[in-house]
Design a protein around this nucleic acid. Sequence first.
DNA 1: GTATATGCAAACCGTTTGCATGGCT
DNA 2: AGCCATGCAAACGGTTTGCATATAC
Lengths: 146, 146
Amino acid sequence: MSLNPENAANADLGRTWLSSAEVRPTKQRLALADLLVGDGRNRHVTAESLFAAASDTGAKVSLATVYNTLRAFCDAGLMNEVTVDGHRSYFDTRVDEHPHYYWEATGELTDAPKSAVAFAKEPEAPAGATVSRVDVVIRLAKNSRV
Amino acid sequence: MSLNPENAANADLGRTWLSSAEVRPTKQRLALADLLVGDGRNRHVTAESLFAAASDTGAKVSLATVYNTLRAFCDAGLMNEVTVDGHRSYFDTRVDEHPHYYWEATGELTDAPKSAVAFAKEPEAPAGATVSRVDVVIRLAKNSRV
DNA sequence: GTATATGCAAACCGTTTGCATGGCT
DNA sequence: AGCCATGCAAACGGTTTGCATATAC
């Protein structure tokens, strides 16, 4: 599988991602970037989950650096912080505005398809203010079998 | 103004509110309830802001009790916890599902009029799951004068 | 060479909890 | 009387920070 040309390209996705935002590609940041965007798909992580994933691959990154790095990626516009749970921060590699599913049973956060939410009209701001973002979180309960 | 019959009624709003959920009306809970629903309007508070408000009125309540009480009110269905800011919990006296404004400049949370958000169709859950709640937070930036 | 990132441990902050005291029914 | 709420202070968990070292440019 390492011969698959797609994988060869993917190996550079993380580096490209970092350079697109002029973020210094250090060893740790490359390792984390690879975990985040290495396969071209979107990720939703917490600092702890990313730290665990990095440790699993043998990467040598401290938890504090994971926190600092996620902040840096957000500041650089590479990721978005999503607030759904008062005691944990989620970070999303997808930076456009889109709805989320929050699986209450597991605490997992995933993208909702755009089709899941349709506004009849754009949400309105009160006078003297402008909408900076609209967060939509669809909280999901496991189907209880009736 | 203390002669205003509405105020006389209001003095009991807190007590009525508590008894409607079978929550024991202790001195502290009555003081907090009065601050929360005493004027019949909806409130959005944090533990700290409610503690400060209580202290301002001379009420003798500890911060821990404010936390415990807000939890108790939520458990009793009197309030809802709203998550908009990863490092603070907001509590809302309005328990039906409705959108919120989050004023990024001040960290204030207020109700949005129902008319501010209109769905073309109800948000959808993926197969095998059911929607437990849909949180809509309209984040507001102060209008910059151009 | 200089600015910046990393790692560790300690600080931090909002929140929760254990336990003794006091209050509600 | 008995159960439950209160208060204090200590514990807690996620996150940030200070400082010395290491690395990118």
